[in-house]
Simulated scan of single mutants.
Amino acid sequence: MRFADLAALREPSRRIGTVVLGAVAVLGVIAAPAQASSWSSSLTGAGPGFESRRWADSGGTTNIKFTGCSDDYSNKGVNVLLRKDTLGPDPYYVNAYFTNCFASSTSTSSGTWADHGSGNYYFAVNDALVGVHVWVKSLTVTY
């Protein structure tokens, strides 16, 4: 066989190899294991019914942690309510009452909510308390 014939045979093999590698790369992205996501922030004077930013959750448990809490009435507690953003009234889930984060600027309180399916979520603070504002040095939401 001549050299030109060998080169002609190699070209389709290269194309097939490129297609196979591309397909493997795409499948690797699609089939990548689910990773927990999170975001962090703080609260400054969050009043009754304050709503956090929304986050897209594909399902699984949600953990909300507050560190270093204070309020303007020495209540030493803050209600945290996980809600799901939907058309119509947003459903809400178990209300957590955080108290330990008021002990010091490094003390934490956290709550964990069960899987409520995929969707956009947020939390509200002090839904039922009138006129109480809360400050949180650091908060983390993991989902």
Rank of each mutant, 00 (worst) to 15 (best):
V132E: 15
G68Y: 11
E51V: 08
D71Y: 14
V132Q: 15
V125F: 04
A46K: 00
V130G: 12
S70C: 12
S107A: 15
L129S: 11
T106I: 12
A34V: 13
V94G: 03
R15T: 03
S107Y: 04
T142Y: 00
V141A: 04
G59F: 08
K84D: 03
G59W: 07
A25P: 04
N95L: 15
D5H: 05
L6W: 09
W135P: 02
F123S: 05
V24T: 14
S70R: 14
T18L: 09
G117F: 02
N79T: 06
N75E: 11
Y93L: 07
K137F: 11
G131L: 06
A4W: 07
N120A: 08
R53M: 08
V94T: 15
T67E: 12
G49K: 05
H116L: 02
F102A: 08
T112S: 07
T44L: 08
A46G: 09
Y121D: 03
R54T: 02
S42C: 06
S58G: 07
N100A: 14
T99G: 10
H133V: 15
T112I: 09
S38W: 08
G119K: 05
L21Y: 06
E11L: 10
V136D: 01
N120C: 00
W135E: 10
S40H: 02
K65V: 12
V29D: 03
A128L: 12
V80D: 00
A128T: 13
V130Y: 11
L27T: 13
G28E: 14
G117H: 01
V19T: 07
S42T: 12
A7K: 08
A96M: 08
W39I: 01
D71E: 14
G119P: 03
P12E: 03
A25M: 12
L81K: 14
W39Y: 13
S107G: 06
N95T: 15
P91W: 00
C101Y: 00
R2G: 12
M1V: 11
C69W: 08
G88F: 04
R14E: 11
S107H: 05
R53E: 09
E11I: 11
